[in-house]
């Protein structure tokens, strides 16, 4: 099963009149178990696209299906919302309950889980994000630190046990440690729970390291959709549309310029190290 996007075009409207389209004829498939990184300039339509994935907005033109459920059908949206978890930008701003426990339990409660199941899910979600259940359950979400609040909010989405987890710039405004924690959590979710991750990020390094597929949006169209090493080997094109490339790629470009031939597809520290070791073996 997978997410299939077929000829998706979307235009916002203002005062009843449609604006120029934000998304133009998107076509691709997100396979199960994948880690899709979405990159693109601000305003390229990344957030607009991910909102389609659980029917928060729906277009008349084009079809999005999640595991075969067509999102243009209103009756299917409820099913899809329990399949697709959505972590918006600055998710900590949606915290509202008196205690962390109640806030994390909001999703499962809406899914009409019974009391025991809710408890099980809350405990599991809090453990996943690394919030100690005994210490944090009864605290107010508003007295946590920034990073803890972000993790509590993410736990609120994880408690719904989504098969697909969509995150819109989940690391924005976090310190390096907080960023690493979120990335480690996503890796763990994918490895252990087989969760499909779809993440918007401006950090090319993080995308290169973790993503298995990269979608580049430019002015609402698909600019590139491929494995990270292929996408980032198009460094010049990416820079021409105002995007950056991973630091390792920058080093590789500079090495090539100075006469050290190195494959264009190397974009992570690990790949770089492997290439280096190979070279030493042959030397």
């Amino acid at each position: 099963m997978s997410v299939v996007v077929n000829h998706l075009t979307y235009a916002y409207s203002e005062g009843g009149k449609p604006l120029p389209p934000t998304l133009i004829d998107l076509n691709f498939t997100i396979e199960e178990g994948e880690f899709l990184g979405i990159i693109g300039h601000t305003g390229s339509g990344k957030s607009t696209f991910v909102k389609h994935l659980n029917g928060l907005i729906a277009s008349e033109k084009g079809v999005v299906t999640v595991d075969g459920h067509d999102l243009s059908e209103k009756s299917e949206r409820k099913i899809v919302r329990s399949l697709v978890g959505m972590v918006f930008q600055y998710p900590e701003y949606q915290l509202f309950a008196e205690t962390v426990y109640d806030d994390v339990a909001f999703g499962p409660k809406n899914m009409k889980c019974d009391e025991a199941e809710i408890k099980k899910r809350v405990v599991r979600a809090m453990e996943l994000v690394g919030l100690d259940v005994d210490r944090f359950s009864s605290r107010s979400p508003f007295e946590l630190s920034g990073g803890e609040r972000r993790r509590a909010a993410i736990a609120g989405v994880l408690a719904m046990e989504p098969k697909y987890l969509v995150l819109d710039e989940p690391m924005a405004g976090l310190d390096p440690k907080g960023r690493e924690e979120i990335l480690a959590l996503l890796e763990r979710l994918r490895r252990e729970n087989g969760c499909t991750i779809i993440m918007i990020s401006h950090s090319m390094d993080d995308i290169a390291r973790h993503a298995t597929k990269v979608l580049v949006l430019e002015k609402g169209s698909v600019y590139l959709f491929d494995k990270p090493e292929i996408v980032f080997s198009h460094a010049e094109e990416l820079m021409s549309i105002g995007l950056s490339v991973p630091n390792v790629t920058k080093i590789c470009i500079e090495m090539n310029r100075r006469g050290v031939p190195i494959p264009k597809t190397i974009c992570t520290e690990n790949a770089f190290l492997n290439w280096f070791k190979e070279g030493r073996k042959h030397a």
Partner: peptide
């Protein structure tokens, strides 16, 4: 939107 994504009705 965020609360709707968490199943709020």
């Amino acid at each position: 939107s965020a609360q709707m994504a968490r199943g709020a009705d």
